[in-house]
Design a protein around this nucleic acid. Structure first.
Lengths: 234, 234
DNA sequence: CACGGAATTATTGTCGACAATTTATGATAT
DNA sequence: ATATCATAAATTGTCGACAATAATTCCGTG
């Protein structure tokens, strides 16, 4: 199911922030877009829903997940927990050839850093998932994949207008520390990297304007929507 | 979807080890058992499949997940990572009334320890999930719930014939250390607890008998099944 | 008697149609 | 002009039927 082209397509769109939080994912629309039937789309949405990447509201449909600032912080906290552990485990069983993919990803990132649009996967997320993979723990890999995708959504939802999305090259430093088998150093840089990513967001303002309060209840289907279409997007 | 009665039923059956790894979950059988239609069952199985609680094999159906010894170790390793972090976070924001549920669960466990059969949820798993909940991190809670369920499957699959399933009351000790705000102590006991749980299993023997090797490929649908029904169960 | 292959049976996968609910539109009254 | 209510359109939810695939059974052959 994870290799399903529709799932891959939606995941990529989330990675690349083309699908923004709150967007409606109509079944008919998706079915015609991917040239398949509604049953298939329904399975895909259910699958993505169980990963909290889309939110399924009964009788209302599927929406790209929006999460509260509290939950966004939880995602970052959990990433720190998992990535610390991943680096630690990876360096306990490290062999030089294991770092090959890591170096390759760093090089790829550098070569693509000048392009504005990518045709492939989100390389930044791949880097973090690759570290989880080096730990040799498949459960960690799966959780990391989920969190990386949810992080893309959080960034899309909470990024500040002016802030750059990409941090100034923390990945090469992390990779270097890992290749040097410097566990404490790698963990420290990684943690700072995640903290900086989080700092670029505006998760702090508890002041959700009144209109947004109304929107929240609208999203939950408690209050009927007055007139405007989906809050953002299609 | 998580509150769906069919999902709850299957989850409870997994918790209580009535559904054993490898069992076939026929759609028609489930539909008639729960008095619903096949479409609904299909959604449920897809949902459980994306949590790795059941394994979906195309054109073959759904089976209660069996995992390799390596993956079982990964589940325990990841639990240690998450529970360490959960205890740490919980004690950083601890208030006395937060421990109420914890104490209640310990008391419940003690009162039910004499009964052989439970009518409710798996209390042992609830204890661990409750600690995750104390951390205030909903992502941690969700991951913990998934791992607790998968641990039930691992235990059912790998438990030694003679070994008792229930460890000698580590939970009260852990709860006590948490209520005493002894972070290091709580973590140490928890880690030992998980290590002991793992030690009661036979994850070590790399000697999967020839018959089991064949069974593995059969489960994967590579080799057609000769005659016998599902390896275990219905 | 064992082995291999074809027909039968059972189960899963797919599709389309209909029902239920929600959303949008338009009319009417204040 | 705004608000409220009824009607119409669109979308989701549900169900049953048919096609495709896998498993079993049965039969023939060596």
């Amino acid at each position: 199911m994870d290799q399903d082209p529709v799932v891959q397509g939606i995941l990529k769109a989330i990675s690349l922030k083309r699908l923004r939080p709150g967007m409606k994912l109509g079944e008919i629309e998706l079915a015609s877009a991917f040239g398949t039937n509604r049953t298939h789309i329904r399975q895909v949405l259910s699958h993505l829903g169980s990963r909290d990447l889309v939110t399924l509201i009964p009788n209302r449909g599927a929406f790209v997940s929006q999460c509260s600032a509290e939950e966004a912080r939880a995602i970052f906290d959990t990433r720190k927990i998992l990535e610390r552990a991943a680096i630690s485990a990876a360096l306990d069983r490290f062999t030089p050839e294991m770092g090959k993919n890591l170096s390759r990803l760093v090089a790829l990132e550098k070569s693509h850093s000048h392009d504005d649009r990518w045709d492939g996967l989100d390389l930044s997320a791949s880097f973090h998932v690759e570290i989880a993979r080096l730990s040799g723990n498949p459960v960690l890999v799966k959780f990391m994949e989920e969190l990386a995708l949810r992080t893309s959504l959080v960034i899309a939802q909470y990024e500040q207008p002016g802030a750059e999305d990409h941090c100034p090259d923390a990945h090469p430093d992390i990779a270097e520390r890992i290749l040097a088998r410097d566990k404490a150093g790698a963990i420290a840089i990684m943690e700072r990297h995640l903290t900086e990513m989080q700092a670029r967001l505006r998760l702090d303002g508890g002041d959700e304007s009144e209109a947004d309060i109304a929107a929240i209840f609208q999203e939950l289907g408690i209050i009927p929507r007055t007139k405007a279409g989906a809050r953002r997007g299609a």
